[in-house]
């Protein structure tokens, strides 16, 4: 028996919002430590890795590890039936072929349950090597979303260049070119407004803007986004999910041929 209860259904709604552009389906791997998801987009250029820890749920029970193949379009439709303030419970019998979502209104006057068929998805897990990144940038998630959106109007690639002064985002195309430079903030009163750069060595990498824009669908989950870069390895874009977990997006760089 698997059962996970979350008081804030909005977290699950935002998680689906954050992954449904990139992925059509994904396997939710549930164990007693929590729910994990790892899936590449169809082009195998980007990967989503999500983790929701069991101690972040109000109630969590997982008698035996269970992998639930979810159609994310269907799951999105079901989660749209939950009000933001509803309590959501996901539950499934061991080796079940369906999962049930129960939404309870705060005053318990309305209880809805939705049963969704599960899919048999082949599990292709990638080994992601632990990496000491040359540059780790933290900036306001809204700022990053704005930069990606603005620059994607100029070209289909964004060059991210990180030095100890700060980070520069550039794009060029038919209409011209654009550069956005963010300096490290010195003393900001609020942590989530800071731009910080931890640099071991300067890095400049090129990425496809459309993937960066897909990643920013996770902006509603966190005030801060973290970008980790090293020469010739995928970019990592990480959003924390409250106190319960994180979503990490990996993006393969564009390389001069």
């Amino acid at each position: 028996m698997f059962e996970a209860r979350l008081v804030q259904s909005s977290i699950l709604k935002k998680v689906l919002e954050a992954i449904k552009d990139l992925l059509n389906e994904a396997t939710f791997d549930c164990s007693d430590s929590g729910i994990q998801l790892q899936a590449m987009d169809n082009s195998h250029v980007s990967l989503v890795s999500m983790n929701l820890r069991s101690d972040g749920f109000d109630k969590y029970r997982c008698d035996r590890n269970i992998s639930m193949g979810m159609n994310l379009g269907s799951m999105t439709k079901i989660l749209k039936c939950a009000a933001n303030e509803d309590v959501v419970t996901m539950k499934a019998q061991d080796n079940a072929d369906t999962v049930t979502f129960v939404f309870e209104s705060p005053n318990q006057e309305k209880v809805s349950d939705y049963e969704m068929k599960l899919m048999n998805l082949d599990q292709e897990h990638l080994g992601i090597p632990e990496t000491e990144y040359a540059c780790v940038v933290r900036l306001p998630a809204g700022e990053f979303a704005r930069i990606c959106r603005d620059l994607s109007q100029f070209g289909e690639s964004v060059v991210i260049s990180c030095t100890k002064e700060g980070v520069k985002f550039s794009s060029a195309g038919d209409i011209g070119s654009a550069n956005i430079k963010l300096a490290q903030t010195s003393n900001v009163d609020k942590e989530e407004l800071a731009v910080t750069v931890e640099m071991q060595e300067p890095v400049t990498l090129t990425f496809a803007s459309r993937y960066l824009n897909s990643f920013t669908k996770a902006t509603s989950l966190s005030n801060v986004v973290q970008l980790s870069m090293s020469p010739d390895v995928p970019l990592v874009v990480e959003y924390r999910i409250g106190e319960i977990g994180h979503i990490r997006y990996y993006l393969a760089p564009k390389i001069e041929d």
């Binding site: 082009s43 292709e124 080994g127 992601i128 990996y250 393969a252 001069e256 041929d257």
Partner: peptide, 14 residues
Amino acid sequence: EDMQSKLSRFFSKN
């Protein structure tokens, strides 16, 4: 024009 690489270049299948 830069060529888009694939993740399989960096991550191996488990």
